[in-house]
Design a protein around this nucleic acid. Structure first.
Lengths: 149, 149
DNA sequence: GGGGTAAGTCCGGAATCTGGACCCACCATA
DNA sequence: TATGGTGGGTCCAGATTCCGGACTTACCCC
């Protein structure tokens, strides 16, 4: 009898790369334009050691790119690659959830405006039909073979 | 001179709740309809101990609800609360990123169909104008006071 | 020379995670 | 009666990871 193997779905794979502590907060800083090591340490509060390790993982995974901006005192900035930029929806939806359920009485600590002029409230939609999608409106279609692996 | 404090943004707060290892994979199983402890252990591969701890955190945070489905052998199921259901966009965008960047040659291990009949490819849009949003199209609007706290 | 900045590395102790064994209550079978 | 299976855990010792703080190197500015 085959006992189900743990799935290796795309969620698990993605979390292997960005699921460690501080990885997403480091990414948040890059999204906000803070690309340098010390600045990230200050803004996130991550231990320097840990941040070093995370940045290494993220560059290794092709999410960030380590670019020198000075030689001699060799200094580096971390830039988003296209793959990194594509993580924006993850960050945005995480933030939206926190805004809704964990904001204090001051309201959300960080407010974004969309280029359309309105406050940016992220929404999930279906690329095909454009409608908003909530839990229950998408169903498992097929096990491309990897369902239980 | 005030050295910047680590931000406590909504992302950090959210990660405090769902950012620990296995929390999101446990949630994935609940989203897929597997609500029972042993099933989650099998499907995720998480250590039983760790899963116990995560489920406790998630119920404590109001994301899951522990409902008895049998007395006497006391047995429980974990159900999504409305707050839990609102995490669907996070799961969906994580999965979409993994599908795009980490899928093997077999393609994505898990394929979803939207009720509109098409393959479900999650997209991030602006609630106000309905347009798709990518990195760079939303800007920091104001520091509600908590910017650097 | 003195102080500051940037990007790390090194360290020992603390906290977490891990796999595996164990437990208890039930049910089914024979 | 024993035997085995399921479900939802707990307990434990060892491995791994995280943590804060000190230290380093190389520059710049005054």
């Amino acid at each position: 009898m085959a006992t189900a193997q743990p799935r290796t779905c795309s969620i698990a794979r993605t979390l292997d790369v960005i699921g460690e502590k501080w990885a997403l907060l480091a990414l948040r800083e890059v999204f906000l334009g803070n690309r340098r090591f010390d600045e990230m340490v200050r803004r996130t509060g991550a231990p320097r050691d840990t941040l070093t390790a995370r940045l290494k993982t993220l560059t290794g995974a092709g999410i960030l790119e380590r670019r020198p901006y000075s030689e001699h005192p060799a200094r580096f900035e971390y830039h988003l690659t296209p793959a990194g930029r594509d993580l924006y929806p993850v960050i945005a939806t995480l933030m939206a959830w926190g805004d809704k359920y964990l904001a204090g009485e001051d309201g959300p600590p960080l407010v974004l405006d969309h280029t359309c002029g309105h406050r940016f409230v992220p929404q999930l939609t279906c690329q095909a039909c454009g409608e908003t999608v909530q839990y229950g409106q998408a169903r498992v279609a097929a096990a491309a073979s990897g369902w239980a692996r």
